[in-house]
Design a protein around this nucleic acid. Sequence first.
DNA 1: GCGGCGCTGTGAAACGCATAACAGCGTTCT
DNA 2: AGAACGCTGTTATGCGTTTCACAGCGCCGC
Lengths: 229, 229
Amino acid sequence: MTIKRPRTRRKLGRRTVSELVVVRLILYRRILRDLAFSGTRYVFSHQLAILADVTPEQLRRDLMNVRYEGSPTRGYEVVALEERIGAFLDPPTTQSVALVGVGNLGRALFAYFLGRRPLLQIVAAFDIDPAKVDRMINGCPSYHISEARTVMRDKGINVAMIAVPAAAAQSVADILVEAGVRSLLNFADVRLRLPPDVYVEHIDIGVTLEKVAFFARRPVAAAKDVGPA
Amino acid sequence: MTIKRPRTRRKLGRRTVSELVVVRLILYRRILRDLAFSGTRYVFSHQLAILADVTPEQLRRDLMNVRYEGSPTRGYEVVALEERIGAFLDPPTTQSVALVGVGNLGRALFAYFLGRRPLLQIVAAFDIDPAKVDRMINGCPSYHISEARTVMRDKGINVAMIAVPAAAAQSVADILVEAGVRSLLNFADVRLRLPPDVYVEHIDIGVTLEKVAFFARRPVAAAKDVGPA
DNA sequence: GCGGCGCTGTGAAACGCATAACAGCGTTCT
DNA sequence: AGAACGCTGTTATGCGTTTCACAGCGCCGC
Ligand SMILES: NC(=O)c1ccc[n+]([C@@H]2O[C@H](COP(=O)([O-])OP(=O)(O)OC[C@H]3O[C@@H](n4cnc5c(N)ncnc54)[C@H](O)[C@@H]3O)[C@@H](O)[C@H]2O)c1
Ligand SMILES: NC(=O)c1ccc[n+]([C@@H]2O[C@H](COP(=O)([O-])OP(=O)(O)OC[C@H]3O[C@@H](n4cnc5c(N)ncnc54)[C@H](O)[C@@H]3O)[C@@H](O)[C@H]2O)c1
């Protein structure tokens, strides 16, 4: 959903990997986990590609980045590939995440991330409402936003999600960045303006729904890939 | 956040407009609304561009698609441009939307869309849990998923949001499509496999948070646009 | 009144990404 | 055993989008 900003890249060895590749690798990894869970041992590029909704060529190309080689006859070994992608994606240690804004969306996010992703844990919530502060929310302490700096430092948090009203989002973001957060996921419907060394991703549900509604009215897609004669 | 699928396009006159342009137009329009609300009458491309986090060139190029001409000296007239974009984006009549899955996320979405966007209204909720069915949720009736076909037809719904567990998402999507839905916004973390004439957009919050966390660890971006000498 | 400025609209170039095409090779079937 | 198949890794091609660059022009100041 996101707009411009010079594409952030990250080096692996001497290669450089685009954001789009990173996103797809994350997706592949999740699918591989599901496959492993269901007992699948080997998988071909075209099978994985269907599950990820990409072309097999793109999948193979993406896999070049993590230096994992499959067998032409067996395909890819599920757990080995999953681990190889993990070695590229995962942090050396568990990453701590903060969530700012314990409203409707914030609480839903809490419920969602509970127990998933052991390497990515929400360890602090922030709000400005006295009624929501200094309590436990899903087993996680909530603080007043004014304590951001202290808490971030003590818990080593460098990632945050913003789920506050649009009017408050920019000021909250500024506080977070000042408190040492390097990377933000923003749900409020305002584009945040931040220093270029801070990574920001916007999830703009309102815009996305409008987009979906817009394309519900489009002329029928040129279905060029319907079945063979 | 979304992956591939041949870009959906839509004709305007004899031109064709890409998804990316549509998204940005939606965004511009929202910003213009805010500007109008705050009393601004004229705006230059570089000002609007900052608010939208795009380059002025891209903004102007996007505006070519809606055939609105600004004045070199005054810039764009806020309300006129807003209306012109609206004429391109908006449906001839109010569009009805369904929401499937009245769990944590579903309820948050309800709260969020309440009263916004008069042209885009949630008019029906669906669930499978007897406790959540046949009641009013934020002034909107909820039905058992088995009634989908009837309700969709009666209310003329062709857009739906999916907020059910991943395991149920594909079957729910199939039901919706069969009931006449043309366009879907899916929050469950599975890629839906649907006929090519159905438009699907995925909002994959888990993947997005992983992405954000990944780039929190990146080398500092090459800040090439820092201030002048 | 005229020159210069700064903005818009747009053609042309550059870039990044996806798609297509192909070489290598282990397996399997004849 | 030999040949043919199918899948992988990789190089090359094409396309869509963004960025650059500039022509046109109304206004403002001199
Ligand atoms: N609810 C949704 O499904 C949804 C969907 C899309 C976008 N959003 C966006 O997410 C944001 C939150 O939505 P919501 O529905 O949870 O709203 P909400 O009103 O339920 O919750 C907002 C929370 O932020 C807190 N808050 C306000 N100002 C703050 C500040 N300065 N510092 C810290 N906390 C502050 C409030 O006390 C409240 O708890 C909004 O910007 C909304 O546009 C929500
Ligand atoms: N909560 C979040 O913030 C969040 C974030 C990202 C993604 N998601 C995804 O959104 C989906 C919903 O999340 P949630 O937190 O609201 O879960 P939830 O368990 O709170 O709600 C799911 C709802 O779907 C209903 N349901 C189950 N099967 C159904 C079916 N076949 N037909 C109709 N309704 C059915 C359940 O009765 C329940 O009300 C999940 O796929 C989740 O992965 C949620």
